[in-house]
């Protein structure tokens, strides 16, 4: 893991904390969207999941649920499941999906494969590459919030981010505690010390 030390700065900055998403329904049918489960996972594991990733997960989950419910039931081997089955496994599916996303040592499978496996499909899942990288942050000073690409996040220990150069800023109130340009890679997590 590459370790990056961020530069301490006594400057000021302002911003707002993200608001937790409301629990909603997927467009198709009675399947509940997994926003609340994603929020619960991020809080439990102190891991920041950016809004666009969260939207992706919700959309994929709803789309896969819709596909499962509209499967051709005339096939003897089709997945006979209901929206209540899907709602029951939702939390476990999101937990497993995000756990494996945040663990680079584990092979990673699609959300569709994770959902179907939890519903009982006895398939051999395809490994897929991750689209986002992971950074671990160690705080040596009191940091009240973190700013990334102009948005504020809680000062949590892990961030799942899109690859590329990212400006990481640690703030305590209006005071900048640390600031540095980090390179997020999908291949290996980066350790940041603030």
């Amino acid at each position: 893991m590459k370790r990056i030390w961020l530069v301490w700065l006594g400057l000021t900055c302002a911003g707002a904390m993200p608001v937790a998403a409301q629990h909603a329904s997927c467009p198709a049918g009675e399947v509940l969207d997994p926003s609340a489960d994603i929020d619960a996972w991020t809080l439990k594991h102190r891991t920041v999941v950016q809004a666009d990733f969260k939207t992706e997960i919700v959309n994929e989950y709803c789309m896969e649920s819709s596909k499962i419910l509209s499967a051709d039931l005339s096939r003897q081997d089709s997945l006979r499941t209901s929206d209540s089955d899907i709602n029951r496994v939702r939390s476990a599916v999101i937990d497993e999906y995000l756990d494996s996303y945040a663990n680079p040592d584990r092979v990673f499978r699609t959300l569709g494969a994770t959902l179907r496996s939890h519903l009982g499909a006895s398939g051999f899942s395809r490994p897929v590459p991750r689209a986002r990288g992971l950074i671990h942050v160690e705080y040596r000073h009191v940091v009240a919030r973190v700013q990334l690409r102009g948005k504020d996040y809680p000062p949590w220990s892990r961030f799942i981010l899109l690859p590329g150069r990212t400006l990481f800023v640690g703030l305590d109130g209006a005071r900048r505690i640390c600031r540095g340009l980090i390179m997020v890679r999908v291949s290996a997590p980066v350790k940041v010390v603030c």
């Binding site: 096939r75 081997d77 089709s78 997945l79 499978r109 699609t110 569709g112 494969a113 179907r116 499909a121 006895s122 398939g123 051999f124 899942s125 395809r126 897929v128």
Partner: peptide, 11 residues
């Protein structure tokens, strides 16, 4: 029967 090829190699 498990799903599409993007999700499963075998079923």
């Amino acid at each position: 029967a498990c799903g599409e090829a993007k999700d499963f190699i075998a079923c």
